[in-house]
């Protein structure tokens, strides 16, 4: 039961990654690429937690925590770049 739900969750995350990749490559200007980067970092966190569940190690969750806390800094700095802030 857990295996099937996990496979479904990973499949959905993979589909989200593909859609974000399309926007990343095709985006005509840079803010759309910044939004795609944000979506990719948001999807990465559940993928890391899913890897922690399948391999059965609790220590993998720390990496997901680090990414969850730090990922928004890149998007803020991009936004400040366009706002003449950096």
């Amino acid at each position: 039961m857990v295996d099937r739900v996990l496979i479904l969750a990973m499949a959905l995350a993979g589909a989200g990654m593909l859609l974000a990749l399309i926007r990343l490559l095709r985006g005509p200007n840079i803010p759309s690429r910044a939004v795609a980067l944000d979506v990719l970092t948001l999807i990465t966190m559940p993928v890391m937690v899913g890897l922690a569940i399948t391999s059965g190690r609790v220590i993998y969750l720390d990496v997901a925590l680090v990414y969850g806390i730090l990922s928004f800094l890149g998007v803020i700095s991009l936004a400040r770049y366009f706002d003449q802030g950096v």
Binding site: V66, I69, L70, I76, S77, R80, V86
Partner: peptide, 11 residues
């Protein structure tokens, strides 16, 4: 991580 926190304050 600490340097990223200080960067957030600077931004």
């Amino acid at each position: 991580v600490i340097a990223s926190a200080v960067l957030m304050l600077l931004l």
